[in-house]
């Protein structure tokens, strides 16, 4: 038995309708892809910027915490503005102890410590304990620190970025009385051929 041919309103799409639908679908998918792609790139860029700033902030806080407990009189290699130094030496107060065993508590100080910008691996901020001595210890606190601060043209003797300092490095210490101004720049790739640069600064007053 054969079916009777269908009567009425059901029929297939014409070639023209299919072509129009495909074009429209392509347009929609293209726009969605563009939006999705743009959003993804934007998210990635924001994440990278946030990571760079968070990394710089963490490093700056770590440096500040190291210096806040140091003795102001031990802070040498820190220059007064407009010159700055890429390293700082300091000693910390470690509390009361009895190092000579005579039963009389005395003040105990840390060995000499240093925070410095090195040129290794594109620029690292390194912490040292007893630098230059046999028992020297070192820890890298942050990488991707440029040799010169954001906006500075090296070696021209001019304050290019208008922050009051001349030719400051990516890590700069400026002694301001009992306080130390710390400037830290971080520069890392954004994965798309460009760079993300962040510069943060803080002022620390020595408590000792």
């Amino acid at each position: 038995m054969t079916r009777a041919p269908r009567q009425g309103f059901e029929r297939g799409f014409t070639l023209l309708e299919l072509a129009v639908a495909l074009v429209l679908l392509a347009l929609v998918i293209g726009n969605v892809y563009t939006v999705l792609g743009g959003t993804t790139r934007d998210v990635g860029a924001r994440s990278a910027e946030f990571e760079a700033e968070a990394q710089a902030r963490r490093a700056l806080d770590r440096i500040a915490m190291a210096l806040v407990g140091s003795y102001e009189r031990t802070l040498f290699e820190g220059a007064e503005s407009p010159d700055s130094r890429p390293l700082i030496n300091y000693e910390e107060f470690l509390g009361m102890g009895d190092p000579d065993g005579d039963g009389v508590p005395q003040e105990v100080f840390s060995p000499l410590m240093r925070i410095a910008l090195t040129a290794q691996s594109g620029g690292e901020v390194t912490w040292y304990e007893s630098p230059g001595e046999a028992g020297e210890r070192r820890v890298v606190w942050v990488k991707d620190v440029p040799q010169f601060a954001q906006g500075e043209i090296p070696g021209n003797g001019v304050d290019d970025n208008g922050n009051g300092l001349v030719d400051e490095s990516g890590l700069a210490f400026v002694k301001e009385g009992r306080s130390v101004r710390i400037l830290l720049s971080v520069r890392r790739s954004n994965g798309q051929g460009g760079w993300i640069e962040k510069q943060l600064q803080t002022v620390v007053t020595c408590r000792n």
Partner: peptide, 8 residues
């Protein structure tokens, strides 16, 4: 008189 301050 302040003798010393530190983080612990």
């Amino acid at each position: 008189r302040l003798v010393g301050w530190r983080l612990v």
